[in-house]
Design a protein around this nucleic acid. Structure first.
Lengths: 390, 390
DNA sequence: TTGAAAGCGCTAACAT
DNA sequence: ATGTTAGCGCTTTCAA
């Protein structure tokens, strides 16, 4: 049971209750004949005086005439502390509006319960949606999320990594900037044992865990769907050449062509930087071909929408003359006319999965050190690829 | 100048350099005849042994035979420390790969350089874009951002506020959940002097700084634009009744009607919950009116797009029969057919402004305590409201 | 110009 | 079941 200590002579056994004053228990020390109320009464005065004052466990301890250790343990439901003491302490904590100083706690525990996330930006819906997924799982498991944007800039990304590490995040989730040059900045920390998970954009060389959209399967699904619809000459509009995403989606496309015994034609395999200008140029080039394509598969919804608009402008019917498909299942694809066939990559799920692996890694240790997980999505068929007459 | 101390007799003046071994300066103490290299050589061994070891200022101090205080001061460019010492210490810091423990620093300084942000979710582009703006300004000024989603749930929001405050964020940026019940959870901290800035969704009763889209002006612009286009019977599709945003946009609408001597008609002022179902129902009701509207102004782009789709389905020509306008300038409005006339609220700018006010408040103190700032956007005119024949 | 020492709030050995 | 003590890494008087 919590005991009250005399503020004057520091004795415990000598205290008697001496009635109430302003709804507060008043005590008297029979030894030194000192009248007083509980310490946190005094504290309240201080509180008024000093701005920004926070109750500490020591305040509680003093107020109850017990030690800080006991308070700390009680608040953590340590089995050593008796039920009554624990209850009394918790009650007092509420009464005194105690909030733990998480900073101090993190400092001594060497654990911040915070994970750092680096993403290229927050304007693109798929990034923010992945972040949303991460945040959701994180908060469910009691982790806070510190977030940085690299703005697709490598140096910013490097700086962010260091900043997050200096803040002692418990783990790092990172989606590389496009112009990623190396992963040295990450390797240092990885070697130190900081859990790191890559997502969406990934360097295969790194020995970290990785979460990817199922790019190959997605591209296969789209391609097969177009083939099923009767398309034989399917153009593909890709992103920048060296990117993993470009490679994977291209390989999915090639897989399905091969399966249908269609020889790939370099003339209808176009690399772009995703910009509207380059995409439209690619389309124009395709249309000028002696054998123009009967379908265009863009590996990004955004590009696909540029294509749709451009084809409409050139009075080419979609899907009758040329079918169009995208990749990603951006919200826009639903609203555009015709609705865009695409592959739903489940961005939010990617974020959730990344955070789940992070949790595994933080708990399970080395076991899951270098997992590669792909999140499968599903085909979303809309008007841009449907040929109603079949 | 940094001096080297003998690890054995702790003297400084007795040390002589004694050549190099493995590229490291070797010393000898002429008093005790003790040969040694710099302490961080030993440290390296420790480093290998103990996982997760970080160099501290004390390590640097020991390695150089000076005190931690001096190291600390040098790293902060304290004028008391001589140029040479400072330079030498900084060099050593780099060599030993010193990174300050921000946790410890925050702990003693009672300043985390971190601000907390609470937003309803990350799926809606305008929220993530505001977060982007916040993050941008924050990182420019050396602040980190901890982010939480309330999922439009009041209790989650309350929990988030406490969690962030327990982490001792230096300030709080909050966009309330829709079903906001009170702001007691915030007032406590505000009274303690924590800088708090509300943005986008705001409670006017709170005495905090606020950043808002210029809802009145935006609605005025849209309404006036529709009037200019010759519309006389402009319906408005609103959000939930009690929301500030609803009220403000409605009042902008009413202002302009009044200015044109058009009496508002309750029958064409519709409240919805923004859901597709309710919005479509509202449209149907409008169309059944003896005098159907010649324009529909939706105070959200999302709703406007539902309207566009529905009108198309019902074979009503936009803008010829009914003009349509939205609010917000969501990306989708550009891609939809016809392109949606709307008001660009500059979400990113709202976030930036909120963070700027936060910075002011953290620096300037009470001066800016309860500022209300509105971020003006601009009219974006697209096909959904253009009557080409005029 | 530099150092010694105390302390921030909390936790965890190690007593008792 | 509870208390004592030391220490986490850093900053900051105060002293020299």
């Amino acid at each position: 049971m919590p005991r009250v200590k005399c503020p004057k002579c520091n004795k415990v056994e000598t205290i008697l209750k001496s009635g109430f004053i302003r709804q507060k228990q008043r005590y008297v020390c029979k030894e030194c004949n000192y009248n007083f109320t509980l310490h946190h009464e005094n504290r309240k005065a201080k509180h008024q005086a000093r701005r920004n004052y926070h109750t500490t466990i020591l305040d509680i301890a003093k107020a109850m005439g017990i030690s800080a250790t006991t308070v700390s343990r009680a608040l953590h439901d340590h089995p050593d502390i008796s039920r009554q003491t624990t209850a009394a302490i918790k009650e007092m904590a509420v009464e005194m509006d105690y909030h733990p100083n998480l900073l101090a706690r993190s400092f001594v525990n060497r654990k911040t319960n915070t994970i750092g996330v680096i993403i290229p930006n927050l304007e693109a819906t798929f990034f923010s949606s992945m972040l949303g997924g991460i945040q959701k799982v994180a908060s469910q498991s009691g982790y806070r999320v510190i977030m940085c944007q690299s703005n697709e800039d490598h140096q910013t990304e490097v700086d962010n990594v260091h900043a997050l590490m200096d803040s002692r995040v418990d783990g790092l989730l990172i989606c590389h900037s496009m112009e990623n040059l190396s992963y040295d900045h990450i390797k240092v920390y990885q070697d130190r044992g900081v859990p790191i998970v890559h997502f969406y954009r990934v360097l295969m060389e790194s020995a970290t865990s990785k979460v990817l959209a199922n790019n190959v399967e997605g591209a296969e699904n789209i391609t097969q769907h177009l083939l099923d619809r009767g398309c034989r000459r399917i153009a593909i509009i890709l992103g920048p050449n060296p990117l993993l995403i470009t490679k994977e989606r291209l390989s999915g496309y090639l897989n399905m062509l091969k399966k249908s015994d269609i020889a790939p034609d370099q003339k209808i395999i176009c690399y772009t930087d995703y910009s509207q200008l380059k995409v439209i140029a690619a389309v124009d080039q395709l249309l000028e071909l002696p054998e123009p394509p009967d379908a265009i598969f863009c590996i990004s919804d955004r590009s696909a929408i540029y294509v749709l608009k451009h084809l409409k402008k050139r009075n080419i019917k979609v899907p009758e003359t040329i079918a169009v498909a995208g990749f990603g299942n951006d919200l826009m694809g639903e609203l555009v006319e015709p609705g865009l066939t695409t592959y739903d990559v489940q961005t939010s799920r990617i974020g959730e999965t990344a955070m789940e692996i992070m949790l595994d890694q933080m708990n399970g240790g080395v076991a899951y050190q270098s997992e590669l997980k792909t999140v499968s999505g599903e085909l979303v068929i809309r008007e841009s690829s449907q040929k109603p007459e079949y």
